[in-house]
Design a protein around this nucleic acid. Structure first.
Lengths: 255, 255
DNA sequence: CGTTGAATTGACACCGTTCAACGACAGTGG
DNA sequence: CCACTGTCGTTGAACGGTGTCAATTCAACG
């Protein structure tokens, strides 16, 4: 059978690597049809501003998106999204977000109106439950960031972020043998690790020297994945991937 | 009319200070009736362990609960809950959590079975939407913690945490004129600010010296609330309280 | 009144910030 | 073709924030 990414070019990566198998054919079609509009962005663009009321949510189809907060003339990154993520699904219930949504590099997104989501919520309890699940996943990732910010020094934090992004890309079929591509700059990494670009540069130099990972513009290369994950104290359980917590049967039960 | 806390002694604080008014009478009754069992804890107790499968969720009725993660022989706090919080509602969809749930001081909780939640999810779309909202609130708080861990030095982080806890208690009718009561120790605070107990002690001494806040065992006293919130760079918008983001009418629309 | 957990203090090393400057590279326009 | 420009990456040195270890005081409680 042709794979979901081909059959559902807009939403085929949603929950891929987690519980996508819990989605029925009909549900996959409903989801794909829910995208009312598709947009491409060439360069970094803020597609939703903090506090701005919105009546639609964004599915990330291709590229990367950051959740950022600017305060006191400085930018902080509180989350990163990869293809297949329903980026601001939570705007459906919150109406206004506490952070900005910005694209990174070349990005393709799909918009789903909150009316459509409301209809799904009322008529498709199972699908809506998976929507809920996907927002809980984001929360679990936030918690892990909170943990690692407390626990690790800067160079280990980057290792953790790199390991996480790589794993998440892999789950949606976009990882590579020995790393991944991304338009992230050292400044982006710094803003998501709670350090300065200058110190991030030193941290990355350390990773390179110790053969943990090599960060280049547009490409991250890892020779020894286990060393990377050890250095960043990375345990993928919190990503709730297939097999990661051995919960398939429970998730199936949810189906 | 008698207030909700009296009429619904178990769940009367759920969403209080946010969108509790969106709950209909019938829904309030359904919610109150959903508590299958009530338990009291005298001393700190771990009521759900990381990774342990569970088939019920916990409503915090009285006292405090921490979300903790122990790694490398050290404890980290990634969240704190106050009365009215549906603490591990997310366990309903996740089945296993990535963190421990531990009580703090004297605590009263109510248990709701996942079967009951499933029934509500299928038959009460509006109530289930508010359940979802409450988990999104937790996520927003996680994001704010992620932000402040990056942005502020230790002494300002505590200020932020204190301001947040005070505000959250106030929202559910448990704040005091000039502070709040809590069984938090300096070590607890340290574990939730990503610092050591020793440094936390110095940070608290600084707050006392600068007249920002006075932390005593069991009691936090604040003379100048504005000074505290300024010191911790605290903006309550992310708590989505009534009037805080001016979204009442939208939330009503959700109703 | 002794025990226990919590709070406090000092000294010292390390991590990370800041400021200042420089280098590498791609895109642009003369 | 080359100079100009902007962004990103790199480096050094001084300084402040935080962790660590060790020791002591304090408060609550049996």
């Amino acid at each position: 059978m042709v794979d979901d990414v081909t059959r559902f070019p807009l939403t085929g990566r949603f929950l891929m690597g987690r519980s996508r198998h819990a989605l029925g054919e009909r549900e996959k079609e409903i989801l794909e049809a829910s995208i009312a509009e598709v947009r491409d962005f060439d360069k970094p663009t803020r597609i939703l501003a903090r506090g701005e009321p919105t009546s639609r949510s964004t599915m990330l189809i291709d590229g990367f998106i950051l959740r950022t907060i600017i305060e006191n003339d400085r930018r902080y990154v509180v989350g990163i999204q990869v293809p297949g993520d329903f980026v601001d699904l939570h705007a459906y219930a919150l109406k206004r977000l506490d952070h900005d949504i910005v694209t990174l590099g070349r990005t393709k997104v799909g918009y789903v109106s909150h009316d459509t989501i409301a209809r799904i919520h009322e008529n498709e309890p199972h699908l809506s439950r998976l929507f809920w699940f996907s927002t809980l996943l984001d929360a679990a990732i936030h918690r892990q960031w909170t943990l690692k910010l407390q626990q690790l020094k800067a160079s280990r934090r980057v290792s953790h972020r790199i390991a996480e992004i790589w794993k998440r890309l892999e789950m949606v079929g976009l990882g590579r043998q020995s790393g991944f591509r991304s338009p992230l700059t050292q400044t982006d990494l710094a803003d998501m690790c709670g350090t300065t670009p200058i110190h991030m540069n030193r941290a990355l130099a350390e990773l390179r020297r110790d053969d943990v990972a090599e960060f280049r513009r547009g490409l991250v290369v890892v020779r020894d994945r286990e060393a990377l994950e050890r250095h960043g104290d990375f345990d993928p359980a919190y990503l709730y991937g297939e097999g990661l917590l051995h919960v398939e049967h429970e998730l199936d039960a949810l189906a």
